[in-house]
């Protein structure tokens, strides 16, 4: 499937509460060079990408940094195993899923 079919998709909890939209997909490079999905970055307030401000070290220009961090407040990374189902109406999360920091280490 296409990565862009996942991006901007609604993300909902078990009870149907919408918690945001997928704004990026995080992969980890394995020992053979493959890229395996770690999880999805979910933003509750916007569909727009982070423009690189998910990198903790990037904070200039200050005005843009503050604006994008405000726009993406509450964003989180959800691990792929915490995704229960993919439907046409969105991604459904498992009960008790964990919201992890979305910043790149």
């Amino acid at each position: 499937m296409l990565l862009t079919e996942l991006l901007r998709m609604r993300v909902v909890e078990v009870d149907g509460t919408e918690v945001g939209r997928v704004v990026d997909a995080r992969f980890r490079i394995d020992a053979q060079g493959g890229a395996r999905l770690v999880g999805l970055i979910v933003s509750p307030h916007t569909r727009a990408p982070f423009l690189g401000y998910e990198r903790a070290a990037l904070d200039e220009p200050l005005v843009l940094d503050r604006f994008l961090r405000w726009l993406h407040r509450g964003s989180f990374l959800v691990d792929w195993p915490d995704v229960r189902r993919l439907d046409d109406d969105g991604l459904h999360l498992r009960e008790g899923y964990e919201r992890r920091p979305s910043t790149l280490p």
Binding site: V23, D24, R26, R28, L104
Partner: peptide, 9 residues
Amino acid sequence: PGRLVDAEF
């Protein structure tokens, strides 16, 4: 290996 990559970005 081990590097994290945000695909859209």
